[in-house]
């Protein structure tokens, strides 16, 4: 599915300083019953965001009006567990275009890249600095520059570079997806199929 091009993103951020956030928390299984990709943002972090009577939990960062922005900052090992792409859809649908953490689970990272959310991995020290800065001032802005592969905390001016392979980078910069690429080399794939024994 096509998504918007990503170049430079500069916004404030929501902090979620919990480690090992798994995709069952990002979107619980009971919300996976849709046959269309619509409305998943409403149930992002459902059981952390709402009580069982559907009233919002006031202390959860996503419910706290002092936070805003298009960047989600999460604790180490973000997105572990289930492969459900719905987790990345929910993150996107809520309005996030970037998740920053000191470590990502593989499948979630890949899913994000496929749906137009940029996963940015930084050092644990820098991550803690960012959490601290947001706590001190929720309007603190973070600048993510994909072209130059840098992330900067504007309040301190501190910056780190992050990794992304050049193919995925081009895709994100241009809003292309893998299917566009694969469709273009279908002939080559069809030749390859003939060599498979089973």
């Amino acid at each position: 599915m096509a998504y918007d091009k990503f170049n430079i993103l500069q916004t404030s951020a929501y902090p979620l300083s919990i480690e090992n956030v798994d995709t069952d928390q990002i979107i619980p299984a009971r919300f996976l019953k849709a046959t269309e990709r619509k409305g998943f943002g409403d149930n992002l972090f459902r059981d952390w965001r709402y009580n069982s009577d559907d009233s919002p939990k006031v202390d959860f960062p996503l419910n706290n009006p002092k936070y805003s922005g298009k960047i989600l900052v999460g604790g180490r090992n973000f997105g572990s567990g289930s492969s459900r792409e719905h987790a990345a859809w929910a993150v996107y649908d809520f309005g996030f275009r970037c998740v920053i953490s000191s470590f990502f689970a593989d499948i979630f990272r890949g899913n994000c890249l496929n749906v137009g959310v940029l996963p940015v991995q930084i050092s644990e020290n820098f991550l803690q600095e960012i959490f601290g800065a947001i706590e001190a001032n929720p309007d603190t802005e973070i600048k993510v520059d994909l072209q130059n592969q840098t992330v900067t905390l504007l309040s301190s001016g501190n910056s780190e570079s992050f990794e992304i392979n050049s193919y995925k980078k081009e895709n994100m910069l241009n809003g292309f997806d893998d299917i566009d690429y694969l469709q273009n080399i279908k002939g080559e794939i069809q030749e390859f199929v003939k060599t498979r024994p089973f």
Binding site: S83, R84, I107, V115, D178, L182, V193
Partner: peptide, 16 residues
């Protein structure tokens, strides 16, 4: 794999 990749496999029998 994620759903985008399911679509890739269905359409081209490959993923990236």
């Amino acid at each position: 794999i994620g759903t985008s990749e399911v679509e890739m496999v269905l359409s081209t029998q490959c993923i990236m």
